[in-house]
Simulated scan of single mutants.
Amino acid sequence: MNNTDKIYNLAVSGVQKLIPYTPGKPIEELERELGLSNIIKLASNENPLGPGKKALAAIQATLKDLALYPDGNGFNLKSALAEKYAVDMSQITLGNGSNEILELVARAFLTPGLEVVFSQHAFAVYPIVTQAVGATAVVAPALNYGHDLDAMLQRVTDKTRLVFIANPNNPTGTLLNHADLEAFIGALPDTCVCVLDEAYCEFVGGQSEDNSIAWLKKYPNLLITRTFSKAYGLAGLRIGYGLSSPQLADILNRVRQPFNNNMLALAAAEAALTDVEHLQNTITVNAQGMQFITEGFKNLGLGWIPSAGNFVLVDLKQPAMPTYEALLRKGVIVRPVGVYELPNHLRITIGTQAENQLFLQALTEVLGRIGSLPIATLPPSLAVAG
């Protein structure tokens, strides 16, 4: 080992072997690599409609104040969230995306020797925050690509401090029955915090968005995390939040960094909560796009995992990386999910109608060139005009 490598030995043990999270390839990176233009990105579950008009107006109105620090307590956004969900402001923790809330709960509750339970095929950040603090990950096998709650509960011991559940799950899109999920939370010991990651809850529809909020009154060890990055179209501003008991929120806010939310994010998120029309348009476009893309998969002879989110996993029945790379060369960015132990799948974010058409056309051409799958001709309704 040379002298420059010795620095790695100084890092804490969990960090030394940590593999950082790899985000979806940025459009600019593909432009640099291949010199392409008119690239479409369907890799990171972003909102294809972007931010709503109210959020954009709030950002514009806030620009004049950028020389000032933001409100470190996020009073206005907390007030809006408290009103929306009928909770007290003391139950809210604001994060730099809901991703930061996941990190905060790990920092606050985990040490080496303690354990975290989560499912196979669950969000990649769960093992990352676990390893970073030196705790032990206990992975329960998936059931039909989703959470096996019985298997997870069997793995909870007196060493378990956190349980992570994503509902809908990323990257598979599976959705748990609410009665089963509440029974699971109720069966957990009070020495274990249940983190219910609901980053995609707005796409589920019905009363599902409100059901879990009611559980906060019964389960003081429950933490619900949500984000403005997906349905609200504010991924670039990085803002999310946690809902919990006041006591749990107090612990998280003790380790939360001051000014972790910038001024533009706070203003945009507050405005976005009132933009019902934009949210409904987003949900409608997603539902239509999901039907459109899965119909395309059917015509291509491909299987997929039914999804409750704004993305869908397609099963290529062969290693997915060659198809992923071929799509890149056509200017279409999707997401390989080999890191989730799903090497034959690609995750596709639902885009606009035009983006969905371009993706299906590119996929048809790529699979036809590879020649290893039965290729059906897309019907006129799925073809790209011109």
Rank of each mutant, 00 (worst) to 15 (best):
T191V: 00
T191G: 13
C192Y: 01
C192K: 01
V193Q: 02
V193I: 15
V195N: 01
V195D: 00
L196E: 01
L196M: 02
D197Q: 03
D197E: 09
E198S: 02
E198Y: 09
Y200R: 03
C201M: 08
F203E: 07
V204W: 07
Q207S: 13
E209T: 05
N211R: 09
S212M: 12
I213C: 03
A214R: 14
W215Y: 02
W215H: 01
L216N: 01
L216S: 04
L216K: 01
K217P: 02
P220Y: 12
L223G: 08
L223R: 08
I224Y: 00
I224D: 00
T227I: 09
S229Y: 05
K230M: 13
A231G: 06
A231H: 04
A231D: 09
L234D: 06
L234F: 05
L234A: 09
L234P: 03
A235T: 11
G236Q: 12
R238C: 11
I239H: 06
I239D: 05
G240Y: 10
G240C: 10
Y241L: 10
L243K: 01
L243Y: 06
P246A: 10
P246W: 08
P246S: 10
Q247E: 15
L248P: 04
A249S: 15
A249Y: 07
L252C: 02
R254P: 00
R254M: 13
V255Y: 09
R256L: 11
Q257Y: 06
N260W: 03
N261I: 14
N262W: 10
N262H: 14
A265K: 10
L266H: 03
A269K: 11
E270R: 15
A271F: 05
A271G: 04
A272K: 03
L273I: 08
T274F: 06
T274C: 00
T274W: 05
V276P: 00
V276C: 04
E277H: 08
E277P: 00
E277L: 09
H278Q: 12
H278E: 03
N281A: 09
I283V: 15
I283A: 12
T284D: 14
N286G: 10
N286K: 15
Q288R: 11
Q288I: 07
G289L: 02
M290L: 13
Q291R: 07
I293H: 01
T294D: 03
T294Q: 01
F297H: 08
N299E: 13
L300M: 14
G301W: 04
G301Q: 04
L302C: 04
W304P: 00
W304R: 02
W304M: 03
W304S: 12
I305S: 10
I305V: 14
P306H: 06
A308W: 03
F311C: 06
V312I: 15
V312L: 11
L313A: 14
L313F: 10
V314I: 11
V314L: 04
V314D: 01
V314K: 01
D315I: 05
L316V: 07
K317Q: 12
P319A: 10
P319Q: 03
A320G: 04
M321T: 09
